[in-house]
Amino acid sequence: MTSLLASLMRPGVFGSLLLAVAFAAAWEWLPGLAGIPPFIIPPLSDVLAESLRMLRIDALITHTGITLAEVAVGFLLGCLLGMVVGYGLGMSPTAEMMLSPYILALQIAPKVAFAPLFVMWFGYTVYPKILVAVLIVFFPVMVNVLGAMRTVDRDMVNLVRSFSAGRFQIFWKLEFPASMPALFSGLRIASTLAVIGVVVGEMVGGNTGLGYLLVFGEGQANTAMVFVTIILLTVIGILAYAAVIIAERSVLHYLPKRNLGPA
């Protein structure tokens, strides 16, 4: 308990909390004082009231759950695909040379622009949303994995080879574990992108998920509803990011701790 109190009193944490309180207060009272109408910026209390209304009437939990599930599935599938392709291309320089111009083109194409296409293909189901997420998650994961495979220390490879390791052993004992830090920085980026992919998919078609509520709220000119939805989407993004961080801490436990000052 004392340690919790002590950590709350650390200058950084204390400042953060203070900032949060100041922000909430500013949100509640500043728009009114500045004469900004509630349909532009609804005060915090309106947004809280709206969220309770949405819980009762608009099945907010169901929509949030659907979006969360789509993000989770899209993220996992996209990461898996990115890893498979990244490691695969890393193992085969020929394949990489052959495919790299197309991968580059696809990487440059704005992935969210595929959302209407996927809706046309798969209708108002969860699949187009997951597919956009997969597509958008795929690249940072693949690019990071491939980059890590290319930059494995040649002397390390030679060391493992000198023990008569086969190609698969070189991968499994050296390249795969050596790529973990890069993989995780890809996953961090991917976790936030997954939310973007799903929301865009939901905004384009269908009547489920937070992306749908976002468009619905806009159509009703219900600014508070839009705010509630944005906040929930952020929460989902934070959950996804936190999941990556927790996994990263347990996998990369061997890295020297960065000096974060007195704990």
């Binding site: 220390d153 002397d155 390390m156 030679n158 060391l159 000198s162 023990f163 004992k173 050296l174 574990p177 050596a178 973990m180 061997y254 890295l255």
Partner: peptide, 12 residues
């Protein structure tokens, strides 16, 4: 078996 200037110990 060989050994270099770098220890080549795997950090993980």
């Amino acid at each position: 078996a060989f050994m270099l200037q770098k220890d080549l110990l795997l950090p993980w």
